[in-house]
């Protein structure tokens, strides 16, 4: 039976990955590959314009992920502080949107943020804004969309870890004279590092390949790696260059995973 998951992993993960890596070292012709071994694809993918796109994508994912975690943490802390019977009820509204189609959620958010939309009406009614709301098709709209879409998957891992912080430890810190802020900064926050690391991983990795949000909410301005990569595969039909870009993104993801693993070292086996 153990062979089944191995076969499954091999078929859907290892084989495509090996093929992608292999193709990235081959020469290209339109909608095809040739058997000439070359590093040109990597030279092209890691230089000039595409290097800038790659850098911008890393920054985009870092900022988006940081924003998600910064907003998810207080939500998770609030839920973790509720009596046990209320926690699930409090988590449900956070998770429900996640069960709707990604595209529907993004398009609905686009309608809310559009001129004459709900956000404009509410902000005008609260006198926080005057006139037409012009946020759609801007970087701000993309970041709002990212937080909206990825917040649920950032809340859950942080909440799971916070629930496991033994109350005795925070109580002990309070007994020893630490105020609420110091107790949080020196006990709760360090102990929740694995949750933060998982939340960063779960949000930053999909953001590295994000192409729907920049298109639907950002107006397609400011190219990111996800779009650049898919354009090489589809529009330019340049599979080797697209593969080289995919391998670079994968390497960056591997780097993120390694950094996060290092940041959470010492948390194995559930023992803080």
């Amino acid at each position: 039976m153990a062979a089944v998951p191995a076969l499954w992993l091999g078929a859907v993960f290892v084989v495509p990955l090996v093929l992608t890596v292999a193709v990235s070292f081959l020469g290209s012709s339109f909608a095809g590959i040739d058997d000439r071994l070359t590093l040109d694809n990597y030279r092209q993918a890691a230089s000039g314009f595409y290097l800038a796109v790659f850098g911008r994508t890393l920054l985009f994912a870092a900022m988006g992920s940081a924003l998600c975690v910064a907003l998810a943490y207080p939500v998770a802390l609030f839920i973790a502080g509720l009596p046990e019977r209320w926690r699930l009820r409090a988590l449900v509204p956070v998770l429900i949107p996640y069960f709707a189609s990604f595209l529907i959620r993004v398009m609905a958010l686009g309608m809310v943020m559009s001129r004459g939309g709900l956000a404009e009406a509410v902000l005008n009614a609260l006198h926080l804004h005057r006139g037409a709301l012009d946020v759609l098709n801007s970087p701000a709209a993309v970041f709002i969309g990212m937080v909206y879409v990825y917040l649920p998957i950032a809340v859950v891992p942080i909440l799971v870890v916070l629930e496991r912080v033994p109350p005795a430890l925070t109580e002990a810190s309070r007994d020893l004279g630490a105020g609420p802020l110091r107790s949080f900064l020196t006990v709760t926050l360090p102990l929740s590092r694995p949750g933060i690391a998982t939340a960063v991983l779960l949000t930053a990795v999909p953001m590295m390949g994000e192409m729907i949000l920049p298109d639907l909410l950002g107006g397609g301005r400011g190219l990111l790696m996800g779009k650049a990569l898919s354009s090489q595969y589809l529009e330019a039909q340049n599979y080797p260059l697209g593969s080289a870009m995919a391998v670079l993104v994968l390497a960056a993801v591997g780097g993120i995973v390694a950094l996060l693993a290092r940041a959470t070292r010492g948390f194995d086996g559930g023992r803080p």
Binding site: F49, A52, G219, R221, G222, L223, A236
Partner: peptide, 13 residues
């Protein structure tokens, strides 16, 4: 065409 388009879209940002 594709590469120049990506440069145009990047410049728009």
């Amino acid at each position: 065409y594709m590469r120049v388009q990506t440069e145009i879209q990047a410049a728009a940002a």
